[in-house]
Design a protein around this nucleic acid. Structure first.
Lengths: 150, 150
DNA sequence: ATTTATTGGTTGACGTCTTCAACTATACTT
DNA sequence: AAGTATAGTTGAAGACGTCAACCAATAAAT
C-alpha cells in the first residue's frame, strides 16, 4: 500500500515533467511560457481578477505578477483597466487575441493528448479521466485544508 | 469522445502545474529546483551517464547541463570524473549525500501523495495507479515514434 | 605517422525572469 | 484632515539557460 503511493508519486512526477514547461517537445504554449499561460488563463476564467489575484493564483509575488502582465499586454493578450470601484486595482480583461491564443493552445494540446491515447479503447480512456478527476479533487480538498490551517 | 481528450488535457495540465516547479507549495525538492532534481535523478539512475546525456535527458543544451552539474557539484551531490575509456567525457557519479537527498525528496513527496489519497479506498487508489501507468506508457510510445521519425 | 575533422566539455557575454525594497497613488479610518 | 493600509510599478540585483567561441581529446583521412 505504502508502495502504491510511492509509485503514484513517481508517475505524477514524470507526468508533471512531460506536461510542464519543458515538456511536449518544449513547445508548451505557442509564444507563451507555462507561467504566462497560467496567468492568462486565470485572467480569462475569473472576471475582475486583479493583478495580485492572478499572482496569488499562480504563486507569484505582486511584482512578479506585474511583470507577467507586462509581457501579456505587450503581446496584446490582455489590457489593463483601472477598476471603477477601486482606483488602485487593475483589472486585466483578456483581449480577443488573448482568448484566441488560449483556445488555440488548448486545441493543440488536446490534439496531442488525442494522438497519445487514440489507440486505447474507450473504457480505458474513461478510466484515466475518472482517475485523474479523483486525483485533482483530492488535491483541491487538501488545498482547502491547508488554507484553513494557516 | 473528443471531449474526453480535452478534459484529460485540462486535468493533466492542472496536475502538471501542481506537481511541477511551482507546486506542492513551491517546495518541490528540498534545496533543488525541479530541473536540478531531474538531472540528479538521471545521473543516479544511469551509470556512466555523461554530462551531455544528462542534458539530453532533460532537454537542455550541453552548456546548460554543465551549469546544472556545476550547481549540483557545489552542493556536494555529484562529482565529476573523467571517463577512463574516453578522456573527453565526464562521468557524474552521485555522492552519498546526493543519494540521500534524492531519497529524502522521494520520501517527502510520497508522504504528500499519501496524505492526499489516504481517505480513498484501496480500489480507487489502485485504479489511479493503473490509469497513470497506461498514460505514461502512451507517452513513452509516442516518444519512440517521434524519435524514429526524426 | 601526421594532418584534419569531430566530439565532450567549459566559459564569457548576453537576455530573460523573479524577487526585494522603495516608491506612487488611491482608499479607508478616526 | 491626518495617518494608515493597500494595489501596483520600478530599479537593482541575482539566478538561470543559451549561444558562440574555445580547449582538449579522440577518430578519420591521407
Amino acid at each position: 500500500m505504502k508502495n502504491s503511493f510511492s509509485d503514484i508519486y513517481s508517475l505524477l512526477q514524470e507526468l508533471a515533467w512531460h506536461f510542464g514547461d519543458h515538456g511536449i517537445n518544449g513547445e508548451c504554449c505557442e509564444d507563451l511560457s507555462l507561467v504566462e499561460f497560467m496567468a492568462l488563463k486565470a485572467a480569462h476564467e475569473n472576471d475582475n481578477f486583479s493583478i495580485q489575484d492572478i499572482g496569488n493564483s499562480i504563486n507569484f509575488t505582486k511584482s512578479g505578477a506585474t511583470r507577467i502582465i507586462d509581457r501579456l499586454e505587450t503581446k496584446g493578450y490582455v489590457k489593463r483597466e483601472r477598476s471603477l470601484t477601486d482606483g488602485r486595482v487593475c483589472c486585466v480583461p483578456v483581449t480577443d487575441k488573448g482568448a484566441q491564443v488560449i483556445s488555440q493552445i488548448i486545441k493543440k494540446n488536446t490534439n496531442y493528448v488525442e494522438e497519445l491515447l487514440q489507440d486505447l479503447d474507450p473504457q480505458a480512456i474513461d478510466n484515466i479521466k475518472t482517475a485523474m478527476e479523483i486525483l485533482i479533487k483530492s488535491v483541491h480538498r487538501q488545498d482547502i485544508i491547508k488554507s484553513k490551517s494557516q
